[in-house]
Design a protein around this nucleic acid. Structure first.
Lengths: 220, 220
DNA sequence: GACTCATTTAACCGGATGGTACATTTTAAT
DNA sequence: ATTAAAATGTACCATCCGGTTAAATGAGTC
């Protein structure tokens, strides 16, 4: 998204062309993503989004139809963007314990790297997932995460280092919970219990804890 | 909150009195809590809150001043309410492993029992905790949870069943993460990965998993 | 170089929404 | 009974805000 926006800007600057629908759409989406993430669906302002865009409010309605549709498209774009960062993690050559530990740490870091996405997911959950539900571009790459874990878990059970009776989904659930919560609830948690866990050193500890919790969960 | 509302209703009905400030305030807070939890701060409508109240919009402003102040008071009330349910869990007579396991399961259930509270906390995190921060009634009973864990953990280390080097805060963090996520992200998680974990049987599994993850995390 | 369609601009609208002015009633104190 | 303060009812307002109307501009086509 951000990358595409930058390109669009250059193209416009270089050529002086006026019409460039794809760039305009990408620009709107990027701004919308940021605004919805910051303020939520009802909290975001179409005028504000338009102002931060290189185009006008009229254009937003021209391409996206309504605030809700824009939100949905921004949500889809956010998922797509974050999914890209999930690929390319080769774990099958590692021993099961090490592979799962790496996966936990990677997921932990990946969530930290994408706070805006986390916020959007929180917002979407406030809406009971009704917009993600309407989306057609969902059930694709998420299943890959499960298959990834399945492969590791089965090897671990075969080697006798993981206990039997678990499902990849439940392992993924634990990893997600810790990684997500670490970002989503940072504000309230640190208000109630102090900021220790959210500084540089604290987050290093937290990552190790995420790893240990997951491994402790599956270990035989 | 709910209890107090019911009492207020009865009092009003019985006596026919008109003025009853405390009951009116409690009524407003209860309605506000539900509405803000459902729709967020910007999404909630003052007119709607007023309509669901036994009193008028005028009264809301008379007692609470503004939408934001009402939200803050509702948030505080929610925390206070939920805290009450956390007390009275005697664990010091149990062996460390059993005590911590029970605590994990209890916390898991307690979160499930209070979805509205969870939603409010999510909403507050979207606002970066700025309203909770302004509150004066925060840092009180939350520390009790930490002390509770500290007691169990220290016994566990002494007995050699828990590993050294952890802090009660980090244990609490893990327990909270799993318990919170299980409620907060139910919508999106079940959309992406299916509803298996959120049915009757699934949640029973999830609770056991919460227990196992925590115990696996601290076990020597 | 006229025609056509996609794209863009600028001004505008009507209802929703947070908040208020003002009069009135109720309660407690004297 | 009188009075002052607290509590409440009614009607209203100014602004915000999602969305639109209508007309103009650019680009590819023949």
């Amino acid at each position: 998204m951000t990358r595409q926006k930058a390109e669009a800007g250059q193209t416009e600057t270089k050529s002086g062309w006026k019409q460039n629908p794809e760039a305009v759409k990408a620009d709107i989406l990027a701004v919308a993503l940021a605004e919805f993430s910051r303020n939520g669906l009802s909290g975001a302002r179409m005028d504000e989004i338009a102002a931060k865009t290189r185009t006008s409010k009229r254009m937003i309605y021209y391409y996206f139809g309504s605030k809700e549709e824009l939100y949905q498209k921004a949500l889809e774009a956010a998922y797509a963007e974050v999914r890209k960062g999930e690929e390319a993690l080769a774990l099958s050559h590692l021993a099961p314990v090490e592979a799962l530990g790496r996966l936990a740490e990677f997921t932990f870091d990946h969530h930290r790297r994408n706070p805006d996405f986390i916020r959007l997911v929180m917002i979407e959950n406030i809406h009971d997932g009704k917009y993600l539900e309407q989306s057609e571009t969902i059930g694709s790459l998420n299943q890959a995460a499960i298959r990834n874990i399945a492969e590791i878990y089965e090897r671990g059970v075969r080697d006798g280092v993981f206990r039997k009776g678990l499902s990849p989904l439940r392992i993924h659930w634990i990893i997600s919970a810790i990684s997500f919560f670490n970002v989503s609830n940072q504000a309230t948690f640190s208000l109630l219990f102090g900021k220790q866990l959210f500084g540089e050193a604290g987050q290093e500890l937290a990552r190790q804890d995420a790893r240990e919790a997951v491994l402790g969960f599956v270990r035989a």
